[in-house]
Amino acid sequence: MASEADLIAEEDDAAEPSVAGGQTILVSVTAETAGERLDKTLAALAPELSRARIQALIADGRVSRAGAALADASAKAGPGDYRIEVPPPAPAEPQAEDIPLTVLFEDAHLIVVDKPAGMAVHPAPGSERGTLVNALLHHCGDSLSGVGGVARPGIVHRIDKETSGIVVAAKTDAAHKGLSALFAAHDIERAYVALVRGAPPARSGTIEAAIARSTNDRKKMAIVKTGGRHAVTHYLVDEVFGPEAKPLAARLTCRLETGRTHQIRVHLASKGCPCLGDPVYGSGPPAESVRRAMVEAGLGRQALHAALLGFRHPVTGETLRFESPLPADMARLAVLLAAL
């Protein structure tokens, strides 16, 4: 059986470990190492900080050279001494926040919600507030399971911050342990809808490729030939947009046999059809007509939606199955793509 740490690491953005707070990091850029992007250069010189964390610190005015705060993470790093001010970490215990939730099901043991895009599942550096956990603490009070730890009460699984769709959380320890066992045994029905660039060569198929953290960027995952974690995604092409011989985009239904960090996004990108709008794995721009449709639809994130979640209630034994329609941005984009 997978460990608790393995379970909550599934599917979501890799959490950035916190750095001991209140410290100042001094690094020097030599003439030989100057010229690359500032965030990339500083992340290499201060490996305890991720590139995303460096970007956030720059945005907060906490990175300076010669006493002047730097504002552009993409600017070229010049030679000299840099000062990085790392603030104390936020309190580990998240606070309840009155954030509206779309509740699909709730009883004394668990709650199922339809998470909007842009909401992180639990607090992490850069997303300390406005998370699903903050909302659940307000909605459920003290009834959330404590098995997930102080920062992740009730959380059994996660989906990416910018992925919309269905998430289940436990309100009791018994439900938490039961749900964890179901996820560990892959005894959960999960389906995602993805709008992708181009289309896979086959109208249905299985992508089986191990996934591990990228050696080039710790915030990204990558397919590896050795090591990594076993990952299997089954896909079905529901609709093709544009010329049949050379599709511009497609709508896919993906069913997870395993649940790894960024699994669907990495697997689809490996087949040359990344999720539209994916800022991390969407290498290469889509066709101009598709880009116009994305702008008109207001898509500002990866076009991926957790549309279905089914499982046996871990306490009552009842069979539960929930479906979520496409959110407005993806629904509008699908309509516009169909007109290509």
Rank of each mutant, 00 (worst) to 15 (best):
A297D: 02
R291M: 02
A59Y: 07
Q302S: 04
Y192N: 08
A135G: 13
V196Q: 07
C273G: 02
V280C: 01
L49W: 13
L326N: 14
H234Y: 05
S283N: 05
S127F: 10
T30V: 03
I211P: 15
L256H: 11
P100F: 13
G259L: 07
A9P: 00
R65A: 14
T316M: 03
V280L: 13
K271E: 09
P286Y: 03
R197K: 15
L137W: 08
M294I: 04
E85Y: 01
A71Y: 02
T253I: 13
V196N: 05
D12P: 00
A334E: 14
R62V: 03
T41S: 14
D98C: 14
K115P: 15
R312P: 01
A151T: 09
P88R: 12
R291D: 00
P200N: 06
G300F: 00
A194H: 01
V237E: 00
Q95T: 15
R213W: 06
G178D: 03
H305M: 01
L179P: 03
H313E: 09
M330D: 06
D329Y: 06
P125C: 03
D60A: 14
L248I: 09
R255D: 08
V168K: 13
Q302L: 13
G146M: 07
V237P: 08
R129H: 13
P274H: 06
G298Q: 04
E106M: 09
G178I: 04
P153W: 06
G300W: 00
R260A: 10
I159K: 03
S28F: 04
V290C: 01
A191T: 10
G284H: 00
P94D: 14
P327Y: 09
D329Q: 10
R292E: 02
A287L: 01
S324L: 02
D142E: 15
H122C: 09
D173Q: 02
A66H: 11
A250D: 04
G282I: 05
E16L: 08
D72I: 11
E318V: 07
A31P: 09
G298F: 01
H267M: 04
A92N: 14
L70Y: 01
L320T: 06
A92F: 14
L299F: 00
I166F: 04
K219S: 14
E323Y: 05
G22D: 09
A212F: 04
I207V: 13
T33S: 14
C273R: 02
G165Y: 00
T226A: 12
F183Y: 11
A339W: 11
D81I: 10
A124I: 07
V147R: 03
A52Q: 09
V133P: 05
R301M: 03
T172A: 05
R37N: 06
P89F: 01
K219L: 15
A5W: 06
T215W: 07
K171P: 15
R260E: 04
